[in-house]
Design a protein around this nucleic acid. Sequence first.
DNA 1: GTTCCTGCAAAAGCTTTGCAGAAGA
DNA 2: TCTTCTGCAAAGCTTTTGCAGGAAC
Lengths: 140, 140
Amino acid sequence: MNETFEKLSEELKKKNIRLSHQRLKVLEYMSTHKTHPTVDQIYHDLHKDIPTLSKTTIYNTLNTLINAGLIKSVTIEDTEVRYDSVTDEHGHFKCESCGTIFDFSIDFNSFSTQDLGNFKIKNKDVYFKGICPNCISEQH
Amino acid sequence: MNETFEKLSEELKKKNIRLSHQRLKVLEYMSTHKTHPTVDQIYHDLHKDIPTLSKTTIYNTLNTLINAGLIKSVTIEDTEVRYDSVTDEHGHFKCESCGTIFDFSIDFNSFSTQDLGNFKIKNKDVYFKGICPNCISEQH
DNA sequence: GTTCCTGCAAAAGCTTTGCAGAAGA
DNA sequence: TCTTCTGCAAAGCTTTTGCAGGAAC
């Protein structure tokens, strides 16, 4: 239980989404694990606490939360979808060595996007890939 | 047949990849359709010319071209993979209304990314979503 | 008591794999 | 001739759907 979790629970109540045990656990997981987990990772971890939990419920819950605007899906690699709590604008960096995804702050207004003068931009995503400092130092 | 297509054919020869009829057609398609097509779109269009063409061959060919570094895969929406000829660095804008993907030039050096000082960055992708000028004017 | 949610099983959709015949070099 | 490619069929995965029982309100 933390501030973010309670904030998210409040949001669910506002939107008339029922606070089931499973949903609260997924929400708690998302608010305490800022690791951009995959469905598999969420399932693996929560299954220990709730043996009857099914992946279907996780898919349902994540889609519900996406529709409610509480989380976002993130696709950097083509083969895996990850999920992210909605926070401030940030970029994603995926380490090709250990697979970890790091957030970094980014000033979206610093882009030079003169080509898009007549476009209505609703969403900006920045994805970087490379090697993180931990893996760089391990290679020495 | 255009300059880009011939350049790409040359690249294949250099890498000892055989110039089969199907591969040349896929290459030609990629070099003349800068629309970031999906596998389905490529299949649909080329099937008219080559009725025996299979999706397996398109998958094989695209993977061969990716390994050769001649094209890239692009994932903006979670549910569809698209393919892009390798060109200069550019951002991708997807129109939520008509689905078209537009390229726009972007100065990757203009990012303020002070958080990533110790990261080795190999790859930068920028994905925007919104409404394109054509669809904006149709809404009036 | 009603409504909505869970979770099993099955379906659906996309991509990869195995392999025999065909085509390229 | 020898190697590699094509394309069918089947397998493999992830995600969605249908639905009966159960939980939330």
